[in-house]
């Protein structure tokens, strides 16, 4: 900073909301979750896209997870158009990286790139709740959770989006295994994690009206990324 004078912020949603009816965000909702295992990572998201207020469903199948490399997957929820724009920017940076270094970007590096990209729009944020899942440099599963302006941390299991608050406590219980006896760190197999993920979403769909239709699982292992699709309630 060159000066101690207050920085003039060119635009904030708050001033626009009070000054005029212009509001450039829409909440398309949806839920994303990720669980990391010893040598795998499972990312999951429902495929319903809804239109903010008004109980409207835009489409029952609009995938909101994107494979960025052989070792990492990005899930978005919130404002879908911002999510798409974010993906576009990230993908371009990945391509430049590939040409410059002749290799794919690692998941931890990608996590940092995502953070600075989000922070670059600190005062006009991407209204996207994102989750990055993949394998780290040692081949261990990892999930990074974000807020919409770039604060992030790696975690074992994370859920975000409209049904996030319903799923997160369940994951805390089933994955972190926190009990009054201490943390019961059970080794999680891929099948166990997939079951927890599917049951999380069928349960969230029961109670969150913006989550539903189909569930997509992205399973990231050293062999690559597998996609599985399951039914969810459609009401």
């Amino acid at each position: 900073m060159d000066s101690f004078l207050p920085v003039q912020v060119s635009w904030t949603p708050q001033t626009a909301a009070s000054g005029s009816d212009f509001y450039p965000y829409t909440n398309n909702a949806g839920t994303v979750a990720g669980i990391s295992g010893g040598d795998f990572c499972v990312m999951a998201a429902d495929t319903r896209q809804s239109f903010g207020v008004g109980y409207l469903i835009n489409t029952r199948y609009q995938p909101k997870m994107f494979k960025l490399s052989n070792g990492s997957v990005l899930g978005t929820s919130g404002f879908y158009a911002d999510g798409l724009t974010l993906i576009k920017r990230i993908n371009q940076r990945l391509e430049w990286y590939k040409h410059a270094h002749d290799k794919e970007m690692s998941t931890p590096a990608l996590a940092q790139l995502l953070s600075i990209t989000l922070y670059s729009k600190r005062f006009f944020p991407y209204y996207a709740r994102v989750l990055l899942g993949g394998l780290d440099l040692e081949g261990h599963g990892v999930v990074y959770g974000y807020d919409s302006i770039g604060s992030y941390e790696p975690c074992l299991a994370r859920a975000t989006g409209s049904g996030g608050s319903l799923i997160q406590p369940f994951l805390d219980n089933q994955i972190y295994r926190k009990t009054p006896l201490g943390i019961l760190q059970a080794p999680h197999t891929l099948d166990q994690v997939k079951a927890v993920m599917r049951d999380s979403f069928t349960s969230a769909t029961e109670r969150d009206i913006q989550t539903g239709d189909y569930l997509e699982l992205f399973i990231i292992t050293a062999q690559g990324v597998d996609v599985e699709k399951y039914d969810l309630r459609k009401d």
């Binding site: 009054p180 006896l181 166990q192 069928t202 039914d231």
Partner: peptide, 22 residues
């Protein structure tokens, strides 16, 4: 009932003794 409840893949019953008696 146009959409039946989707069955859970796993059971999440807690084993007796999960809650510690202090």
């Amino acid at each position: 009932v146009p959409y039946p409840t989707i069955q859970k893949v796993d059971s999440y019953k807690f084993k007796p003794g999960t809650t510690a008696i202090l």
